[in-house]
Design a protein around this nucleic acid. Structure first.
Lengths: 217, 217
DNA sequence: CTTATTTTGTACAATTCAGTACATAAATAT
DNA sequence: ATATTTATGTACTGAATTGTACAAAATAAG
């Protein structure tokens, strides 16, 4: 991707991709307004002028972080929604992949970067609102596409409303994104995802999983 | 509620409740970190020292705003979920009430104050995370309670998992809260709510409302 | 080696931030 | 009237904010 051209002048002391990832993590934790350039400088281990040189101002850096996150999310989702798998499994793979991101192996739960930060900023920043909207619509589209495929395979009735079901599938994802920031446990969120999948795929018999562990954080 | 005791000294030039409401609106638009005390002072039309005297520091003011919003939301939801109404209508009343808040009659869409601001702040502020969690659980509880009632009335099968369905009902609400900040139109969000209600209540025949208007913002 | 080019690191400027000190104003109590 | 109490309004402090100027450093080109 990043073609290694022969660059003149002093070489960079950072990897742009790594730096963007670290900047993303800083925004992820503290939000856009709550993340200072000092914090970004520390996170990326780039000094201030290098940050500006590489990404432009704070807003451009955040925009790049959002773009990268959305693109990666789409790729992960495309993989998870493998059409060779049963619809149930495919959907759960999306939610499990999301939960893996929302609950890092080390450190506190962090939820979804896009939802956790852009939703606040979108009110006063039309550019962020636009990116947030495009991101959400992208995920809607992938769900819908996969559901339509399930219809052609007979996994879902041909009369089902794929667009509507995709909206519900997305809603489950949105809920996981938020709840993981509200102190809910990963297990509790996975149970919610399963409920959603049951409902979308049309459980023949309602599961009787009473007393399943649902402990808080 | 606020007992009008005989107060000595210079009378206040503001109404605490009104001021808290205006402060809420400022936070609603700009988030916690993005709202300066100057902005709060302007919104409440209270000068800085009066703000501190009345509410304490910025954090305490935000906490009070959250508390008030959650309490009001609970009340509205209790009214909407009237047990005398069919489950379908009751649920749609909740979503319609939410959309009425998220899309004010004048001004841009603003979504949910709790979700739109606390989800960002919850990462670095345990107190906010706690309040966010309690708020969400409160709404879960009301949904679940209403769904259990529907079971006793035979509107839902006795074998249904009320807790799980309540999670889905909440997820729909969470999705509306976010999407309204992402540029989605109110009509599109209402369609999503209807899809969710259909799924929760178990539509006998999948609705065929193809080509219903779903225009963007 | 010299020059051109690019990045780094320090240091700074101008603003904005949260929070407070203090004098003044406006009410009640005696 | 005078004292007491409470709130207001101005002005301020110290810290944090974003963004930039500029010299030194590190590389390639000639």
């Amino acid at each position: 991707m990043t073609t290694n051209e022969i660059r003149r002048g002093r070489p960079r002391a950072y990897h742009p991709d790594e730096a963007l990832e670290r900047a993303t993590e800083a925004f992820w934790r503290q939000g856009y307004s709550g993340t200072s350039l000092d914090a970004l400088s520390a996170a990326t281990r780039m000094n201030r002028p290098s940050l500006y040189g590489a990404f432009g101002d704070k807003h451009a850096l955040y925009a790049a972080a959002l773009e990268r996150y959305i693109a990666e999310g789409r790729e992960q989702m495309e993989v998870a929604l493998d059409e060779a798998l049963p619809l149930r499994n495919a959907l759960m793979r999306v939610y499990d992949g999301a939960l893996a991101m929302y609950f890092p192996t080390k450190g506190a739960a962090r939820g979804c970067f896009l939802i956790g930060t852009a939703v606040t900023e979108s009110m006063t920043d039309p550019d962020v609102r636009e990116r947030l909207g495009r991101g959400l619509r992208e995920f809607d589209r992938l769900f819908e596409q996969r559901l339509r495929h399930a219809q052609t395979e007979g996994e879902l009735p041909a009369t089902a409303d794929a667009e509507a079901l995709a909206g519900v599938a997305s809603a489950i994802l949105h809920s996981l994104a938020m709840r993981s920031r509200a102190g809910d446990s990963r297990a509790a969120l996975r149970a919610i995802a399963e409920s959603g999948v049951d409902l979308i795929c049309g459980r023949s018999r309602p599961r009787k999983r009473r007393n399943s562990r649902r402990a808080g954080a």
